[in-house]
Design a protein around this nucleic acid. Structure first.
Lengths: 144, 144
DNA sequence: TTTGATGCAAAGTATTTGCAGACTG
DNA sequence: CAGTCTGCAAATACTTTGCATCAAA
């Protein structure tokens, strides 16, 4: 799904819920679905400030909380500065995280859900969600 | 490896490094390697207080930092209250985390490292470490 | 005796919250 | 016009740090 379609979808969902589409909120959504972007709250805030200089970090967090509530954002709970977020693919999937430059690549694994279910059922566990993160050096940082 | 062996091993490592084996430090290690235990700093502190009532939380964190430095503890970076730790198996492995009672079960997956290497090399990524956590309800909580 | 460890309190940092005023619908 | 959203500042909560004192080796 490209950024524009994803943005339009999110705007529709919020409209239907009766949420207001303020300029700040739209700008935050836009930053969240921007291509190849797994921004932190701080990074989103920085981007927003260009267009809406008075936007506060609290508003960014509140919008993220709203998206969490409706399951349209995935929180990647790591980072030396705060958490980073995936607003494009809000379902759990593997991430490749570069420990040097901070880049985050999405990935997929065949039959991964089956693997998880097997693992869980072996322990009498029922799965709600999961997290799978691989840390290392991206191809660009490997060359340096 | 049972708790006692693991504890003795850690004590040896620290001794060889020239670290002092204070009563507090030994008590913290003991709490960390206790069976089926993935305690938080706060939980460790609570257990320590029984025997050494003046032990501070800062000392717990300092000991954990020391163990991180020498790669003998795994930090599980989640929890509504602080992070939890695995002092028995300090290498990455899957965890089953109960979102109701907070229990954490260790697990293993055959050929998991191979799966990770495949995934990473496909993206020109070199792996340093990883994290694989499954959230859900443990067997006990499923019955309630 | 030496020097690393402890414990207290204060600082740090990411995130959340309360509330008055602003603005969307 | 009603009620939600914003923005500020203060509150939270986990973790780290500085420093004087203590004690392991």
């Amino acid at each position: 799904m490209d950024s524009q379609k994803r943005l339009d979808y999110l705007l529709d969902v919020l409209r239907e819920r009766g949420n207001r589409l303020t300029p700040q909120r739209v700008a935050i959504l836009r930053a969240l679905v921007r291509n190849d972007n797994h921004p932190s709250a701080e990074q989103i805030h920085g981007e927003i400030l260009r267009d809406f200089p008075t936007t506060s970090l609290a508003t960014v967090y509140k919008t993220i909380a709203l998206l969490k509530e409706i399951g349209e954002i995935l929180e990647l709970g790591f980072g030396d500065d705060g958490s980073r977020f995936d607003g494009r693919k809000p379902y759990p999937h593997p991430h490749l995280i570069c420990t040097q430059c901070g880049a985050i690549l999405d990935s997929e694994v065949d039959n991964f859900n089956k693997l998880i279910d097997n693992l869980a059922s072996r322990n009498g566990f029922s799965v709600q969600t999961h997290r799978f993160d691989i840390f290392g050096l991206c191809s660009a940082c490997n060359k340096n």
